[in-house]
Structures are given as structure tokens and as C-alpha cells.
Design a protein around this nucleic acid. Sequence first.
DNA 1: ATGGTAGAGCATCTA
Length: 259
Amino acid sequence: MKLATWNVNSITARLPLVTKWLTEAQPDVLCLQEIKCTDDRFPANEFAALGYESTVFGQRTYNGVAILSHAKCRDVQRGFPDDGAEAQARLLAGTIDGVRIVNVYIPNGQAVGTDKYAFKLDWMRRLREFFDAHYQTSQQVLLCGDFNVAPEDRDVWDPGKFVGATHVTPAERDAVTQLEKWGTEDVFRHFYGDADGLFSYWDYRAGDFHEHRGMRIDLVLATTPLAARARWAVVDRNARKGKQPSDHAPVITDFDERS
DNA sequence: ATGGTAGAGCATCTA
């Protein structure tokens, strides 16, 4: 099973690029974040024409997550179980080919000390509690998406430029560590050792992409039984080039078929 | 020059 995660920064603006990419990359599953549209405006017909079923948890203007899959997506869950009707659309879970997939768009946090930063940390704490309450580490569980956290200093282009900034604070990194301590492994990092420069996001501004000023904030965490099936993982930087790209590139992981 | 660009939706807000 070939699975990709991609923050597309509006599925409407990115539709030509995403359809072209699907045709070429042929993933079995594509987890999308920041679709920035309601369910009724999601281009499910265009993806169905390419052989993909759409499972959508949308929202007007901001946020929104979706899962495209060749196979049926079962037991779909939208948001945390205790979310109210006003909750932001940031979590979408479903079971595909025997793998429980949890697709998240973790809050950005804006700036350290703001309400949005506190909301981010609280949201990540709730995510860990959600795993405690609903899943077991013996199951094939995959947590992927835009974490808006760079796990280590080697995951940003210049740690010196991030002093006092979000995405790198000990509290944010600890929240990711808590998700790993629950019983998951950073599948992408596993294939690259201590290498740096493995970015998945580059700011649109100041030519950051072409100057290699990026961050690795799009992660794929898997339980041990699922991580054991991982064959390879890559960032498709080509999808960040060209006309009207997202500011994120797709992160692809390939898993062996179940024995 | 506390800068720069992109998207939603139409004034800013978010990233």
C-alpha cells in the first residue's frame, strides 16, 4: 500500500496539480490537509474519474481534511468524539485495507504565548488521549498529516533562525514525543538516519524553496506492526516546483502487502 | 523597509 500525505493549501486552487500528481504517482491512499472548502464543494467527481473514493471532513475558508483511496474507507470518524458542532475540521480517521488511518491537520500555533499556541498544545494533548482511549499498539495504526512541528533541529533549515518561534519549542516537540511514546515510530526518519534537509514545507515568501529554507513538519507515524511493513519513504519535491504549487510537498510511504 | 507570498472571499485573517 502506497500512502501519501499532502497539505494542499486549498483543494480548489490545487485541483489541476493534485489530479496530475495522482495520475503520475498512483498512491493507494492520499491524506489531504487544508482543503479549505465544505464537503459539498469538494471535487469528489474529478477524483472518482481517476479511481479514487473521497472521504471528506470539510470546513469553510480554513482547515478541512480528506482521504482519497482506491479501496473502501470504512468506520469513518470526523473530529474528536467530544468535539462540539463548532469544532475545527482537523481530524479524519478511517480504515483502509486493514490499516487504521488517522489524518490530522494540527493547529499552526501562530506565535508562542498566544491563544492559538495554547490551543495547539491542548489539541495535541487531546490527540494523545484519543489514541489512549481508542487504539492499541498491537493494531496497524497510522497517524499522518501536517503536524506543524519540526521534531528535531535537523528538521529545520537553520535552528538559529527559529529561536523563540513556534514549530520547534520543547513543549511542541514533547507533544510529538508523547504520540511516539504511545507506541508509534517516525517512519520517514527511520529511512534517513541523522540526515538533515529532509524538508516537506517551504514558505512561499522570499524564494525559500529555491534557497532550500524549509522544514520537515509533515510526518508519518506508525505502530510497530505497521512500521515493520514500511519499504521506503520519500518527499516528492517535484510537486513543490512549477506553477501554483502548495507550500508543502507530498510525503510518500510504501508498505508491504500484509502476509 | 520587523520585509516577503498565497488562498479565501471581499476586509482582513491565516499560514
